[in-house]
């Protein structure tokens, strides 16, 4: 895929916590040639179910449709939502370790941190660690400013996202009743 029409699409999936489920998903993306820009996984509000957020870069809605369909084919994937056209809240968390060898550097860094409503989470003799949350643009902006001080290490979680307002997530009970109505 190439060209200027590449958009990032946010897809979320509710998956069963089973050994190998991440391998299955990663393997599907790899063998079908889909690109994952980022992937975040964590427990959901329901026991034994995790929620994943994928960011897929693609210039074609057809590819995104295939990604969601192929994801859904994986047995442990309970629900897939393409949030590309939804009104969503999307956030990413980054930990950034920056050189701060002088008092003036340290105070300038503190200013940047306040400006971005970030947090200093660790201070060492010659560096500070910053925690920043926001969308990718915000994180890119603070990284641009911090680069001047000398970035030692960056750790990013990848995007997590949910639809704003009304929509409730799929309940386990609902999932169970779906299972029992399945036919041959």
């Amino acid at each position: 895929m190439s060209g200027n029409n590449v958009h990032s699409h946010t897809i979320t999936a509710l998956v069963q916590d089973r050994p190998g489920v991440l391998t299955r998903i990663a393997s599907m993306f790899r063998r079908r040639g889909f690109n994952i820009a980022s992937l975040a996984v964590g427990k959901s509000e329901q026991a034994q179910l995790s929620r994943m957020t994928f960011v897929v870069d693609s210039d074609s809605d057809d590819i995104v449709e295939q990604v969601t369909k192929q994801l859904h084919k994986i047995i442990e994937v309970v629900k897939v939502s393409d949030l590309s056209k939804e009104d969503i809240v999307a956030r990413e968390l980054a930990l950034v370790k920056v050189r701060a060898q002088t008092a003036s550097a340290r105070s300038e860094i503190i200013q940047v941190v306040e400006l971005f409503r970030a947090k200093i989470v660790d201070v060492a003799a010659d560096s500070v660690a910053i925690e920043v949350t926001g969308d990718e643009d915000k994180i890119e902006s603070i990284l641009t400013l911090l680069r001047g001080f000398g970035i030692v290490e960056v750790m990013r979680t990848g995007r997590v996202a949910m639809v704003r307002g009304k929509k409730a997530p799929l309940k386990t009970g609902e999932a169970k009743s779906r299972a029992s109505t399945r036919g041959g």
Partner: peptide
């Protein structure tokens, strides 16, 4: 008697 596969529901 039955299976518990919440992520598997073939559309028939």
């Amino acid at each position: 008697d039955s299976v518990d596969l919440p992520g598997y529901k073939p559309h028939l």
